[in-house]
């Protein structure tokens, strides 16, 4: 049990996928202008990340490894991730049209969100078992969502602030992201 808690803390805080491993930066910059959209994106990614890390594990352990097809793991993972994203997209379109409108182009982009493939590959690299894979994916997603929400909240406030002309828009957002990344370094050595 302690192992799972450690995995969660490690993925959410210490090895945060966005701010420490620098994966999944596209939605991090793209969908963080509004708090609602950031939260929606985080939840969609949580669903996809958890499901795809479990599916990738099953795919690798029961289909690829027994037939010595490990070299096909990347294409196999991409295939399963794309299917999960396609499913999520349809489900969101049906259940929450407003969220679908806001996420727009970024929803299909979860497919190419490198955090999703990164989690699948790291699971294999670190020899996680089934439950550990699920926790690893879930923790990474919670970390992603948390950072998205924090970053979007900061950006909403920064937008209202008096930013010097050359720093308006993307530059101040990148500086903010850098400072957040520095702050997360403080968690190093926690686990």
């Amino acid at each position: 049990m302690t192992d799972y808690v450690i995995i969660l803390i490690s993925t959410v805080l210490v090895n945060n996928f966005v701010l420490v491993k620098f994966l999944g930066l596209c939605p991090f910059m793209g969908v963080s202008k509004k708090l609602d959209a950031a939260l929606g994106m985080g939840l969609a990614t949580t669903f996809v990340l958890t499901l795809s890390s479990v599916m990738s594990y099953l795919l690798y352990t029961y289909l690829l490894a027994p037939f010595e097809l490990e070299y096909l793991k990347t294409i196999g993972f991409i295939l399963s991730i794309a299917a999960v994203v396609g499913f999520t997209e349809m489900a969101i379109h049906k259940s929450s049209p407003a969220l679908y409108q806001v996420l727009g182009i970024y929803l299909p982009l979860i497919t190419t969100n490198c955090a999703v493939l990164g989690v699948a590959l790291l699971n294999i690299g670190e020899d996680h078992n089934f439950i550990e894979s699920a926790f690893y994916g879930f923790g990474a997603a919670i970390g992603f969502t948390m950072v998205m929400v924090l970053f979007a909240s900061i950006r909403e406030r920064v937008d209202a602030g008096d930013v010097p002309m050359p720093f308006k828009g993307a530059p101040i957002a990148l500086i903010t992201a850098g400072l957040m990344s520095l702050a997360f370094m403080g968690f190093g050595g926690l686990v």
Partner: peptide
């Protein structure tokens, strides 16, 4: 064979989802 089977399974899943989550008009 494995990838054919996977593609088929995912194709069926998405095909089912497309029917199950069909949208009439624009809900927004």
């Amino acid at each position: 064979l494995i990838f054919l089977g996977l593609a088929l399974a995912f194709g069926l899943l998405l095909g089912y989802a497309a029917v199950r989550f069909r949208i009439e008009g624009n809900p927004l």
